[in-house]
Design a protein around this nucleic acid. Sequence first.
DNA 1: ATGAAAGCGCTAACAT
DNA 2: ATGTTAGCGCTTTCAT
Lengths: 339, 339
Amino acid sequence: MQRSSAVTMRDVAKLAGVSQSTVSRVLSKAPSLVPISDETTKRVYEAVDQLGYYPNLTARSLRAQQTNMIAIMIADLSNPFYHSIVRTVQDIARKRHHDVLIANTDHSREYETAFCEAMMRRPVDGILMVPYHLTDDEIDNLLRRTGAKIVALAKHLTHPQVDVAFAHDDRATFDAVSWLIQGKGHVRIGFIGVSKTFPPGLRRWQGFVQAMQAAGLGVREDYMQEGDWSVASGQRAMKALLDLPEPPTAVFACNDFMAIGAIDVAHTMGYNIPGDVAVVGFDNIPETMLIRPKLTTLAQYPAEIGRKLGEALFERIEGLEGPRRTFEIPIKLIERDST
Amino acid sequence: MQRSSAVTMRDVAKLAGVSQSTVSRVLSKAPSLVPISDETTKRVYEAVDQLGYYPNLTARSLRAQQTNMIAIMIADLSNPFYHSIVRTVQDIARKRHHDVLIANTDHSREYETAFCEAMMRRPVDGILMVPYHLTDDEIDNLLRRTGAKIVALAKHLTHPQVDVAFAHDDRATFDAVSWLIQGKGHVRIGFIGVSKTFPPGLRRWQGFVQAMQAAGLGVREDYMQEGDWSVASGQRAMKALLDLPEPPTAVFACNDFMAIGAIDVAHTMGYNIPGDVAVVGFDNIPETMLIRPKLTTLAQYPAEIGRKLGEALFERIEGLEGPRRTFEIPIKLIERDST
DNA sequence: ATGAAAGCGCTAACAT
DNA sequence: ATGTTAGCGCTTTCAT
């Protein structure tokens, strides 16, 4: 960036034969506050046109303490669950004339922390995040230090100034596993989870365990696999399950990527789905309907999450005060052909 | 953003008992240029620690004419082809301490233009774009007006200051269709394309037509369908093809999303793949290996594109001069089970 | 109704 | 080796 050639407000002022501050007044809205003659207004706009002037938002940010930027922190752009949140929020931001900064964390604490530091350095008006590690304290710090409004998808956050969207994924897991047991007659059920250091990882694990116990079924250690949300990890986990002397007849995976990996490897190993093993996923990404058999899954609604959170964020940016708001996002079991 | 509570360089200076410009000197690298006493350096760092100071990049940008931000303009974050470019570039940017702004165009000219205007308002150090509509002239304007370095994935751009990555997708299409004819014995081949206003849409259409003609086969109008890159449009196009009195025995789709939609609808309509219809896609997105049959496709290498372009961009940002560079990205036919 | 001037937080040229 | 000064391009008092 060398804006040597850039045209500034000063240039416009000179051409219009007015002072630079008059140009600023004409161009900034705040219409009624200070009256400006029609003649001047016209001359300024003509000069703007003629020079092709665009205001420099960096300068405006510095002065006005308002950046017209928001930031999004998500785990992984490759996952449709996240990128459809992002897409929705981008569209909302565009309407409000805000640019959007984006950061992936790859589910890592280190990157979440690095994101916070980046925000300290480059203030933005608002932050939408899906944190897996950040605590209320850290977010409080971010909030106070940057002045940004923050909204999050996170059941575990209780900060009084952070609007959150959340889903009862523990309960949904419980219900789905119970349905696998009561409705479908499964007894040997495998679990492809993720590290319990991830709040949703822990909640879904709890939901699973409680459902098994509520049905009087024990939890077999060898049925509890841990992946990392990726297709490849789902493949590995399923292979381990299927290599067992007595493999499960149903598998609950904590997201669709892992479920899809599980189905893939089951096919490769010659298993029939759902005949030999039933598989349930989580999220309802578009791919669930493209693979065969179509995946039974717990539907989340990322576009809805993005919309709720995005709009909440801009309401806050535009000055809305008041207590923390929570948006419960439903989860629905979509029964397809993998069960 | 109300940084009322933010700690500035002035605060650090006061606490360390030095002038603000000394703090600036200590904190900015450029180490040897001006020597600073160890004692002062130490005091400054202590003050920084104690106050938890972070430099304000907005202010730095304004003054230094260097934003530490890059922008990425792509068509659609939902498409793995694009988001894997983005992922790669984000990782590169992170290493160089640059934040990344991102914009989707949805393949629309209007949004590409809007993106250019956004860049006029908010200068960035570099722009990586995948333009479908912007011309060399418009990019020249962007370049001169913003001072940003620009790199692009675009075969049709020839601007002397824009490094480009490109693939011979016309030739790859020609080869793939020829292979369908000579290697697989197909004669009735359908085409699921996109608007020819998109340069790659035009090139792939030309590759298809030329391959048919080179083989002495005519091009049947009713076999030429037009989609919009989406799964849904591939479904519609394939349905139209299969509803024909004499449907094609092979279909070439201009991207994997449309190919996957095509396979999906073919299954639903009771067709066997590749028995009744063979399908070839374009891109080699991960989903091609998840669906059944696994999709035969022309592999592009988005991570490679992102890496080449991302590194080229930062080389330019860091001062590399010299003529336009072009990076040819190979395309390879991956034969799987859909043909 | 408009101009002059201060200053957002920083960097860099110019003093010592 | 460090302090002083002048802006980067804008918004916003404070004058007039």
